[in-house]
């Protein structure tokens, strides 16, 4: 089975998958009392769109040479990544019950040698983008048709390695690469703009030789249209600034830094599940 591309039903399918991913991630984090729900919830609509409307892949052949690649640079958001990979068919749903258990394949940060569908090991910030760039350059060298997508957090953009990669990608016109920035405007300790301001991100990437699109990271139509743009229609790498809400979907988690790695108690869990319908 090879998943592909947008259909007339894509938005409905993505909405269903995203809801399932939020509920499942919440369950995992509640059970283990560990995780990063705020960043999971800001990214889940992006991952659901990629895996159910954009990426070409075959979960039965995770090493298929021509698969589209998705690199989860914000590796702490494993609630989002693992639920997406399970929903996509890379591994059975019951593996999610082992989240961060002793010797589990579902480590707190993803490991490609533990789980199919993980393209590289991430966790320390600023790693996924250069690796994704290398994947995209390999595709350019060989003329392979695959596309490479990488998702970073917005606070993660403070790591200098991202700007090294941005410079190289712009210089080499690596147009088969799409960088998505999960722009929820909050990092672990405070707002990004109070910590080490990133704005104007769009101008920065344009100055580095990128095409830039700014969209809502929770609007499936916008996500599908932007992420599905044919590579042939541009001459530069594409940076998608996806404006998101940290903790999206659960009223008392939204836009609060404390839910970066906060975990719900039983009452909060029940309330959150009630809202995620």
């Amino acid at each position: 089975m090879s998943h592909a591309l947008k259909t007339d039903n894509s938005e409905g399918l993505i909405r269903d998958k995203a809801l399932w991913m939020r509920r499942r991630a919440l369950q995992m984090v509640f059970d283990k009392q560990l995780g990063h729900l705020g960043g999971d919830f800001s990214a889940i609509d992006i991952l659901a769109t990629l895996y159910f409307g954009v990426l070409r892949y075959d979960p039965a052949r995770p090493d298929w040479a021509d698969r589209d690649r998705f690199v989860m640079s914000k590796g702490h958001a494993t609630g989002a990544l693992y639920t997406a990979l399970s929903a996509a068919g890379y591994f059975p749903e019951d593996w999610l019950d082992t989240y961060m258990a002793h010797h589990s394949k579902l480590n707190g940060h993803p490991n490609r040698q533990y789980l199919p569908g993980v393209e590289t090991n991430t966790g320390p910030l600023g790693h996924g983008f250069p690796v994704a760039l290398g994947i995209a350059i390999a595709g350019q060298i060989t003329g392979a048709g695959y596309r490479t997508y990488v998702l970073t957090g917005d606070g993660e953009q403070q790591e200098g390695s991202n700007w090294e990669a941005a410079m190289t990608a712009g210089h080499r016109k690596v147009k088969n690469l799409t960088l998505i920035i999960d722009r929820n405007r909050l990092q672990q300790g405070a707002g990004t703009e109070e910590t080490a301001g990133l704005d104007p991100l769009d101008d920065k990437y344009r100055a580095f030789g990128w095409e830039v699109a700014e969209i809502s990271g929770h609007d499936y139509g916008q996500l599908l249209d932007t992420l599905g743009t044919p590579v042939g229609s541009r001459e530069k790498p594409l940076c998608v600034i996806a404006n998101t809400v940290k903790g999206k979907g659960v009223s008392f988690m939204e836009n609060l830094t404390k839910w970066h790695h906060g975990v719900p108690n039983a009452e909060q869990f029940a309330q959150a599940m009630k809202e995620l319908v």
Partner: peptide
């Protein structure tokens, strides 16, 4: 840009 250099190399290996 040494960080990028090594990350890009890992990606090139991912790409075969």
């Amino acid at each position: 840009a040494e960080q990028n250099m090594v990350g890009v190399a890992a990606g090139l290996a991912n790409g075969g």
